[in-house]
């Protein structure tokens, strides 16, 4: 049957057919969220203020780094695989600079963080380098430099100012407030500023954006600079929490941040996504880990379920994107 022989369906009916798969995907998402809520509600001690604090505290450090990664992903630069190494190096710098005072140390950390990642962004934006390959190389370079300069040993703080970052105003970790403020600010930047709009356009179709005369290189570089600053914020909180820093400080942060962004529904192909989605993704991963721990499942099961969540969301986002393009 071809288009000519096919009976023309009434427009409303055709729209309904087109949206049916999309509705099915949305139904699966809603069902998934409801399932998590139902399992949570049936889990002993899940619905408590203390547990809510635990979930959001656990999500805070990964969440801040994931906000940075959101900028990179929306801009169509896939991912940075150098987040852990950047965070480790900046954490070491931050603790080393404590003798200068907390504020100078913070400024140094954020500036260095922005420069480290921004430099990679400039190469991606202006020279069209493959971000995955570039950031793998950068991760080795950063770890090598940090190891060489520190001699591999842990860096101890040279002052006590860092301890202010471990404060708990109102009984909630300071990093939680910072996460919420940054998420809201970033959402505003993405939705309300020219930079935000051009980042979406560059991420949607880089070739078309360049053909339209948009500053693709500059937009990408600025996105990576901001991402680096956000990685630095994660670094200073992580270093303050651990009271020492070495090249392993970042741990599994790279993949945790990627998981949070993807779980929030931001596609790795770029052009879509939001800071608030990433915040939701970080909270979802943290809540599911919390439920599993409260129910007595091992760390291995928690890691496996995190992977399954990411896989499921990636498939659903792909299906939804395909349907919306159909």
């Amino acid at each position: 049957m071809n288009a000519l022989s096919a009976p023309a369906a009434p427009p409303r009916q055709r729209d309904g057919l087109r949206h049916r798969p999309r509705l099915a995907v949305d139904a699966v998402v809603v069902a998934g969220v409801l399932a998590v809520v139902a399992v949570g509600l049936s889990t002993d001690r899940f619905v408590t203020v203390a547990n809510a604090k635990a979930i959001i505290t656990s999500a805070s450090l990964v969440g801040i780094a994931a906000l940075g990664l959101t900028l990179i992903m929306i801009g169509g630069s896939a991912v940075s695989l150098a987040i852990s190494q950047s965070v480790a190096a900046i954490g070491m710098i931050f603790l080393s600079a404590q003798s200068l005072g907390l504020i100078p140390a913070l400024v140094i950390a954020v500036v260095v963080g922005a420069l480290i990642t921004g430099l990679q962004g400039a190469v991606v934006g202006y020279a069209a380098a493959n971000p995955v390959v570039l950031t793998i190389a950068a991760s080795f370079a950063i770890a090598g430099l940090a190891t060489g300069i520190s001699g591999g040993v842990s860096v101890a703080p040279s002052g006590l100012g860092y301890d202010h970052l471990n404060a708990t105003p109102g009984g909630v970790a300071l990093s939680v407030y910072v996460l919420l403020v940054l998420a809201l600010s970033l959402e505003w930047v993405l939705r309300r500023t020219a930079f935000g709009r051009s980042l979406y356009m560059v991420g949607e179709n880089r070739v078309a954006a360049r053909a339209a005369g948009m500053p693709v290189g500059r937009t990408t570089t600025v996105a990576w600079l901001a991402a680096g600053a956000l990685f630095a914020v994660t670094a200073v909180f992580t270093a303050a929490f651990n009271t020492s820093a070495n090249v392993n400080l970042g741990g599994t942060l790279t993949f945790d941040a990627i998981a949070a962004v993807l779980a929030g529904g931001t596609p790795i192909s770029g052009g879509r996504g939001s800071a608030l989605r990433t915040l939701a993704g970080a909270l979802l991963v943290s809540a599911v880990s919390d439920i599993l721990l409260l129910r007595g499942y091992s760390t291995g099961v928690q890691v496996m379920v995190k992977g399954l969540i990411v896989l499921a969301v990636v498939v659903l986002v792909h299906l939804r994107t395909r349907e919306s393009h159909a």
Binding site: A54, I55, N242, G251, L253, S289, L293, L294, T299
Partner: peptide, 15 residues
Amino acid sequence: DPALTGKIATQLIAK
């Protein structure tokens, strides 16, 4: 892993 340890400890305290 100190970061993972911190997360687990936070959750165990909530529990």
